[in-house]
Write a protein that binds this DNA or RNA. Sequence first.
DNA 1: AACACGATGGACT
DNA 2: GTCCATCGTGTTA
Length: 209
Amino acid sequence: MATKVGEPLPSSFYARDALVVARALIGKFVRHGPVIVRITETEAYRGPSDSAAHARFGITPRTQTLFGPVGHAYVYLCYGLHSMLNVVTTGDGSAVLIRAGEPVAGLALIQRRRGAQRGPAILAGPGKLAQGLGLGRDHDGLPLSGQSVISVHDALPPAGLLVGPRVGIDYAAPKHVRAPWRFALAGTKAVSRPQTLRPEGRGTSGREH
DNA sequence: AACACGATGGACT
DNA sequence: GTCCATCGTGTTA
């Protein structure tokens, strides 16, 4: 994937293990219309064998895009209120949840969508991110290509990463997988649960679980 | 047809 | 820290 900074990512970018894609997405840009957001936090969900993933139910009306074309958006409604933006990876039910971001363009529109919210944490959370981007259930299944209304664009590699357990559902992480399932950009305030993240490489610190 | 509950966020003690 | 809005989904009957 010899992609230049600012170019839309090719589908080959997404056709890898969700853990790899989740890590690679940190620092990249998501665009919906005039709004552009830098991705600061992601979380991997790895197919039917992942007991926390929606794919554990197999192909259902809701999860069919999860088993569809690589590099498409999987958007679903959580708690009856919040939309969650995911990127379909290998097509076997795996996906990456985009959990947080920083506004890059379209700040006024983002603020209007987010109500009274202001400041660096305005998109710190999966529901906040989707709301700021103006995404909902009707965007489910759309491609993330340069031709689409939604797209993801390449960026320079981030200086440092934080890693940690998934939020709310660590109970289900396959124990034999040593790698972390959640990734964040080091040094940003746009992260949903900083206290469970640690710098990559160093020993465990902070609260796991 | 009824039911329990969630990959959350905001308000409040 | 606690409470709860709000509804699509999968499960069970």
